[in-house]
Every structure is written in C-alpha cells, then in structure tokens.
C-alpha cells in the first residue's frame, strides 16, 4: 500500500483549489454582469419588467443552489448536447449569484435619496444618464461592502459543484479521502483552505463597511 504524507495530501488539495478560485471568479464576474443588467430591470418604472425580474430573484433565492445545478446539468442535457460538469456548474452559479447581487444592489440604489433622481431629471437627463452620472457613483460606495461579503457566499457555493462531478477543492477532498482513509485530516485541510480563501474577504468587507460608513457620516 502506498503511504501518503501530509504534504502529499495538502499539495493535491491546493492544486484542486485553483479550480475553486477560477470557478468563483467566473461566477462572480458573470453574475455581476448579469446582475447589473437585471438591476436595470428591477428598478425599471415599467411594472411588468420589475415584476418579472422580481420573480426571477424570488425563484433563485427560494430554491436550493444544488437543485439549480441539477436542473442546469440535466436541463442542458435535454437539448441533446453532452454537458460537461463545469458548464452546468458555471451556468447555475452565474444565474444564482446574479439573483443575489441584483437584490443587494437594488437596496443600495433605493437608499439614494429621491431628490437625486428628481434633481437629475430636472437637468433633462435620461434614465441611463441618471444612473450613470448620478445614482450609480453614489450607490457604488454603499454597495462595495455587501458585494465583497457576497463573494464569500460564491466561494462557498462552488463547493456544491462537487456533487455534479466538477473536480474542485471539495471533490478533491473526497477523492483524497478515498485514497488515504484519513477523512479527519483531509476535510480539516479542505476547511482550512476554504477559510484561507474566505476569511480575508469577510474581514475586508467588515473593514470597508466601517470605513465607508465613517465617510458617510461626515457628509
């Protein structure tokens, strides 16, 4: 029987962690872009549009991410194409993050005083101009801490992709456990690697919140 050293275990987990990082980045950026588009729909004065985006958000926030992944995995398969796990995983995570980010950002946009909308409208700005030059720059400052905080949820969300067969940190943990029979050590390391990825983001979210809040109070 082959003996595995602690370093062997850790090295393999770290190699797999690259996929966790990559998938998190893709999901977060993709989700952010889609979320921005949805945000315009969510705060649109057209009722049917804001209702439709609202339902989208309700749907993705009210169902388990795991189910969304299964549906993406098997749903795409219905079109008769061979679906690689990474495609289904990425798609589900992007749709899921977009729903949450839209809702976070809607709160930020709505916290901007009504008068700002009216003032910019009285300057003859169109809806897009208002957003671009008046509302978003102000909302951005409020949005940064919760957005950074949400990135932690995205990283933790990628762990579920192991269930539909994408080999990232969690899946590697299972594989390495099956080879070494040391679940305590392996899952301990897996947890620590996730912690090392997430904790700096959580902490900086907190610090940013404090900093930007102080700036806000001085106005």
């Amino acid at each position: 029987m082959i003996e595995f050293t602690t370093w062997d275990i850790l090295r393999n987990l770290l190699l797999a962690a690259r996929w966790t990082v990559l998938l998190s980045l893709v999901s977060f950026i993709g989700g952010g872009l889609l979320g921005l588009a949805l945000l315009f729909g969510r705060i649109s004065p057209r009722r049917w549009l804001s209702k439709a985006t609202g339902s989208y958000i309700e749907l993705f926030q009210g169902t388990p991410l795991l189910m969304q992944m299964f549906l993406a995995f098997f749903g795409l398969g219905l079109f008769g194409v061979d679906v690689p796990a990474r495609l289904a995983a990425g798609l589900a995570l992007i749709l899921w993050s977009a729903a949450f980010l839209t809702e976070i950002w809607r709160g930020c946009v709505e916290s901007i005083a009504r008068g700002q909308w009216e003032a910019s409208a009285s300057l003859g700005m169109g809806r897009l101009q208002q957003m671009r030059y008046v509302i978003l720059p102000q909302a951005l400052k409020i949005a940064i801490p919760p957005t950074v905080g949400f990135s932690v949820q995205v990283i933790k969300g990628t762990a579920l992709t192991s269930i539909i067969g994408f080999v990232e940190l969690s899946k590697a943990g299972t594989v390495v456990t099956n080879a070494t029979f040391q679940p305590f050590t392996v899952y301990g390391f897996v947890a620590l690697i996730y912690f090392a990825l997430c904790w700096p983001l959580s902490k900086s979210s907190q610090i940013l919140e404090r900093k930007l809040n102080v700036a806000h109070r001085n106005h």
Binding site: L160, S170, P183, Y194, S202
Partner: peptide, 23 residues
Amino acid sequence: VELIRNTPFLIQLFFIFFGLPSI
C-alpha cells in the same frame, strides 16, 4: 463563528460525518 461562516456547509457536514468517527 468565523470558522463556520467562512467554510462551506458541505465540508462541515463531511467533517462531522466522515471526519469525527476517526477520533
């Protein structure tokens, strides 16, 4: 609190179910 909030639920579950029996 920090440990739990910064690790995925799935890993916590695996640690409890697969990891703890070895101690």
